[in-house]
Amino acid sequence: MKRSSCDEHRAWLVDALGGPPQPQGDPTLAAEAAACPECRAVAGEIQSSWELLRLVRPLEPPPALRERTRGAVLALIAEDRAVASRRGWSSASQVPLAVGSGLGAAAATLFLLGGLIWGSHLPEGHLFFCAAIFTGLLVGAFAWIYSATTVSGVHLDVAARVGVLALTITVAATTTCPELHVLWWWDRSVPGRFFTTLLGAGGSSLVFGFTYGLIPGFLAALFGGRLLAARWLANGLVAAGVVFLLATPVIYLQSAPFTSGVIASWLAGTAAGTLCGVFGALRVRARVARAGALG
């Protein structure tokens, strides 16, 4: 028998091991195998080993191991389900809600503060840029609110709620201002003139910015800052950060007539005022809570 035929026969033998090897199943190979003593011997060896291995029965894991393993995976499935429910904002029902809320709040803010209702003199590009920033920030904030997102004890949802509340206070106050640009109104007011004389235009806008961040930040954190007491430093910083971020487009929206130095002072003052306002409110809340008036 040729060597190539022997090789073919052996390859076929292994193939046939899905069941008992039956060389007679292929007439050509069977005939060649019958004529080749070596192939006959190999077929016998392979089949014998294969049959012997059949004697080994399946194993079963110890019941305790089996139950422990099953329980571990079932616990993970339950945990996955709980995590999925906490991440509800990513579900189809809450994403549109966050986007809709963000768009609605951004549009309302722009119409009120950009003067679109009263007749705006702001450049279109300025408005569009501000709209884009506002929409992104507000969609993110509402997503945190709807998802009740909390990371390592830092309540992002509460921070976002404080931020939106502070923005509402800012928009309401700015809308009631007799001037479209609140900094103009400040510059013409008695305290504004005093600080301008004392500190210059930059110093005056710094003081204005401080008040601009302090009052909304304080009020929002005072009335919306529930749950921020635990890990108060991290929670307070995040809440103040959100308040400031949501305030910056408002400042940007009204920045068109002013120099960059004045705007920078306004922003710096707002950042400092926001921090003081939020942490001041948390301190007040803590004192009131200790007095038993708040939970």
């Binding site: 292994v14 190999v42 014998s48 012997l52």
Partner: peptide, 18 residues
């Protein structure tokens, strides 16, 4: 094909050992 070769060699070895 390589897996079948492994099976073939393994069965031969088992047989030889037995």
């Amino acid at each position: 094909a390589a897996t079948k070769q492994l099976a073939y060699r393994a069965l031969k070895r088992v047989r030889a050992e037995l």
